[in-house]
């Protein structure tokens, strides 16, 4: 009897201990991640003025949302976000999968390792640093400065006749964003697929070799089906990010000349809020984005659980 009692007592002190551990983290999350949610909802329905606070500002109903749809920047930003995000999702799957397959054919261990070490270096650098690098690398030059290395190479090879302003031309900006994003991330993404490749049962290859299957047939019938679940999982999880086209990257590389093709929802939220000081309008855009993203992420988690048995918690 006493042992059970002791056990019960222990159980309840354990519970207290667990609650105690979670107190500080939950407090920080509550203040800085949870409170902004109701604050954002409040702001979206009022004409928020910092001096009057969340509860003193005037309630305006759906005015901000109406204004939002009359704003000439809203639709282009939504369109650009979707185009850039979807292109990035596709390229960030196809290229790393392809690269992993090619790298898997390399039998020299040292070469394989060196290639991996080098290709995931850009992943760890911030977009501020990479923008600093790429702005110079892609520069078309001006009266005072010479063109960057990329334009110089293209000019020397005769691929282009005059320097291209990749970051300042509407027809090239989005592609530049997609390519530079793939450039930053493909080395890192490749690792997921390489890990998946090593998980494929080697006896399958041996058996098919006995049956006379060549490399190509093995790739098509064993390797690709073997990593298909990972490809599906990564695709599904990426769907949740379709409204985030990469704020850090675009904010650091765009300029007013390419707002037409480069402005995305997140950069619009920034400009509305911190530059134009239309706090409520900015909060309203943020709220809409958050609602849609939340639905997309939940859907993607459901699908990931269904197709790949993947669970976050």
């Amino acid at each position: 009897m006493s042992k059970i009692k002791l056990n019960r007592k222990k159980r309840s002190t354990d519970q207290l201990f667990f609650h105690g551990m979670l107190f500080l983290p939950v407090l920080f999350l509550f203040i800085y991640h949870f409170l902004p949610i109701p604050a954002g909802i409040l702001m979206s329905f009022e004409n928020f003025q910092p001096g009057k606070g969340f509860f003193g500002s005037k309630f305006v109903g759906f005015d901000n949302f109406k204004k939002l749809f009359l704003l000439p920047d809203t639709l282009p930003a939504l369109r650009n976000t979707l185009i850039i995000a979807i292109e990035k999702i596709a390229c960030n799957i196809v290229i790393p999968v392809g690269f992993a397959l090619l790298l898997n054919e390399v039998r020299v261990k040292l070469l394989k390792r060196t290639v991996q070490t080098v290709t995931y270096l850009p992943y760890f650098l911030s977009w501020v640093i990479l923008s600093g690098i790429l702005i110079k690398f892609l520069s078309p030059g001006s009266a005072a400065t010479s063109p960057g290395l990329f334009n110089t190479i293209l000019l020397k090879l005769g691929i282009i006749k005059e320097a291209v302003y990749f970051l300042g031309t509407n027809s090239t900006f989005r592609q530049t964003m997609v390519v530079s994003d793939v450039w930053k991330n493909f080395g890192y993404n490749t690792i997921v697929y390489l890990a998946a490749l090593t998980g494929i049962d080697p006896t399958l290859y041996e058996a098919s070799a006995v049956d006379g299957a060549g490399r190509w047939k093995q790739t098509v019938h064993i390797t690709i089906p073997g990593i298909a679940p990972f490809i599906i999982l990564m695709t599904v999880l990426a769907i949740g990010n379709v409204l985030s086209a990469g704020f850090d990257q675009i904010f650091n590389m765009y300029n007013p000349a390419v707002y037409e093709t480069g402005d995305i929802i997140d950069t619009l939220v920034y400009r509305l809020g911190l530059v134009n000081k239309q706090f409520s309008l900015s909060a309203a855009v943020g709220l809409l984005k958050s609602i849609v993203s939340c639905i997309l992420v939940l859907t993607s988690y459901k699908l990931a659980d269904k197709f790949a048995g993947y669970r976050v918690w």
Binding site: F34, A39, M43, Y270, S282, A283
Partner: peptide, 14 residues
């Protein structure tokens, strides 16, 4: 808190 974000401006004011 993972799924839903308050957004840039509300977080700034908090």
């Amino acid at each position: 808190v993972m799924l839903f974000s308050g957004g840039m401006m509300p977080t700034y004011f908090i």
